[in-house]
Every structure is written in C-alpha cells, then in structure tokens.
C-alpha cells in the first residue's frame, strides 16, 4: 500500500484516490494504479455489461463512453480518469428504464447470436452517431466533403466506423441494419 497521490506532488505510492461518475453515480475509489477501467467496472462496481474479449484493444467488447467518447476500457488506467463521466451499456436506458433506441433496434433486428460483443457494439454505435453528427470523417468518407458538417451514415460508413468491434458470431449484417434503423 502506498500513500494516496495529490496532484503536483511526487507520486511514489502505488495507489490513488479516484472519483469516477459512472452512469450518473459518483464513486470514490482507492485504486491500485494498475487497475484498468474495465476491471473496475466489472469487479468493483458490479457492472458486468462491459465485456473482456481480448484485454488488448483488439476486439472492442469493452467499449464504454468516457466524457461522451467511445474508448476501449481495457486499455484505460482508471487512475487517469479522475473526475471523468463514464457511461456503460447499463447506463444507456433513459430515466424511466426504457431501452436506448439502439438497444431497441438490436433487439428488433436480432443483431446478435451469443451476445458477448453486443454491449460493446451498442456503446460503440452510440459513439459513432455522436462523431458523425460532430462532422468527424472516417476512412470511407469522401475526402472532398467539406469539414464541420454532419456526415451522413450509409452502410459502408457504419461498417468502417464499427470496425473496432469484432463479432465472432458474424452478426455484422444485422448490426449494420440495427444502426441504420436509428439514423
């Protein structure tokens, strides 16, 4: 056990106090610096929706939203996230417990088989919609498109933008359809 770390002081300890707001609820945790967000969500907070597929940034099953941006929670050290807002698949429902339109669309389209990749796919798709709205291009966006305007998402755009989420069951066609349903 080491001393808690204060900003601006030499940190020789191996633990720090970290405050994370997860799905709207603030948590102050005393964390070993080695802990990644994925493990904190699953093991400390009981939020097992985010999945561990590879633990190396190669599959997207652990995708969560940090300050509104989709990221691989398996590669994010929790200590770096002090003060951040985290949303997981459990936090996508609205206040009344209604599923997010993307969750609804995945159900309607039967966009999964085993379901292991699904929370990551859905969190990633939430991020994709926000990125496209903010005018972020992708590898398949025509480079001549004027910057700063929302990018229209066709099937090719959805496939490219969701390429960081692998599905071993190969539910890709229906995942694309589910995302198309909400745009």
């Amino acid at each position: 056990m080491g001393a808690a770390h204060d900003d601006g002081t030499r940190a020789t300890g191996h633990h720090s106090e970290v405050t994370l707001t997860v799905n709207g609820t603030p948590h102050t945790l005393h964390l070993d610096h080695r802990r990644v967000l994925l493990d904190v969500l699953r093991e400390d907070l009981g939020l097992t929706g985010s999945k561990k597929g590879c633990d190396h940034g190669q599959c997207g099953a652990c995708t969560a939203l940090v300050d509104g941006r989709r990221v691989n929670s398996c590669l994010l050290l929790a200590v770096t996230l002090d003060g951040c807002e985290v949303i997981t698949v459990e936090g996508l429902t609205d206040g009344a417990g209604e599923p997010h339109p993307l969750q609804r669309a995945f159900l309607d389209r039967d966009a999964f088989q085993c379901g292991y990749c699904t929370p990551g796919q859905i969190c990633s798709a939430v991020g994709v919609l926000a990125e496209a709205e903010a005018g972020h291009p992708s590898h398949v966006t025509d480079p001549a498109t004027a910057p700063g305007r929302p990018v229209a998402l066709d099937a090719a755009e959805i496939r490219e933008r969701l390429s960081g989420n692998l599905c071993r069951c190969g539910a890709y066609p229906r995942i694309v359809e589910a995302v198309e349903d909400v745009i």
Binding site: G57, R70, L75, S124, E131, P143, G164
Partner: peptide, 19 residues
C-alpha cells in the same frame, strides 16, 4: 493536409483514435 487526415483515419479503430 488531407494526407495526414487520411493516414490517421486508416489506422486503428474509432475507439483507439479517440484515446
């Protein structure tokens, strides 16, 4: 510098590029 934007977008994934 379109070449720079294109190179970045050809790398990794949306999640990784966000970090």
């Amino acid at each position: 510098y379109p070449v720079l934007s294109q190179a970045l977008l050809a790398g990794a994934s949306g999640q990784l590029r966000n970090a």
